[in-house]
Amino acid sequence: MKRHLLEAADLDRDDATLVLDTAAQIDQALAGREVKKLPTLRGRTVVNLFYEDSTRTRISFELAAKRLSADVINFSAKGSSVSKGESLKDTALTLEAMGADGVVVRHSASGAPHRLANWVRGSVVNAGDGTHEHPTQALLDAYTIRQRLGRLDGVRVTIVGDVLHSRVARSNVGLLHTLGAEVTLVAPPTLLPVGVGSWPAHVGYDLDAALPKSDVVMMLRVQAERMNASFFPSAREYSRRYGLDARRMAALPDDAIVMHPGPMNRGMEIAAEVADSVRSTIVEQVANGVSTRMAVLYLLLGGSPQ
């Protein structure tokens, strides 16, 4: 495995499978235990470097690191030296001087984790950079699919919504393709990126046509700031054409599942009754996030530092 996890393409099929298998073993080992803590990363330091607001991803990484007994330092841009104008590089050098073994970074600028990886000796894990990638989200999604459906090879995954601005979609297309799944993107033409034709995925504009051929439907969050930026005429129209409601859910094959990376807008891209149905894996995804990130931290930080 590579030393950093910056994008889905850093994982080949064997690496990705190793992460998922490791997460499954960790899950099984910790199930029903009173002491949900392992000594594996004792004495290692993980810095959560968050330049963008995030609740679930930061907490998930923090919990993952703590369950492996690493020391965790949370650094958020607000109320830190960043608000005094410190550059990413200077912050990185500071962390380096303090001896961070791993840096988990979220940044609004695509590519920030790549830059960071050149400045620090520890492993860098991308926890979301701009509209680029969010590889651990893709790993936990793949883990959830495999857990529910028992396989990834040949699974038909339909990703619906704002693909243009979605790092979750980008990472998922890459990773799911690596793992042998068949990905279809469904979105209004204005919310598909230029060059989507070269992605390893089918592209469609009609959700109703895609649903009967989907084993997994992954709904992307409609980001509030996009609603007013003329990417689509109105929230109601978006919801009618691309929202997943009970009627559309009924068109899915019997064992199909519904996923959402969260936080979701109930009533917008996903109806409340769909989000709360037995097909929905939204709560499992959160739980799986912790074990998947434990697997990533173990595999990146557990061994010798080069």
Binding site: L18, I26, Q28, A29, L38, P39, Y298, G302, G303
Partner: peptide, 22 residues
């Protein structure tokens, strides 16, 4: 009981795949 995550030689010998704990 898989003991990989409890080993004291991971730094020396590197990480390895885990086995089941049941």
């Amino acid at each position: 009981a898989d003991i990989t995550l409890y080993r004291d030689d991971l730094r020396l010998r590197g990480v390895r795949a885990l086995e089941p704990t049941v």
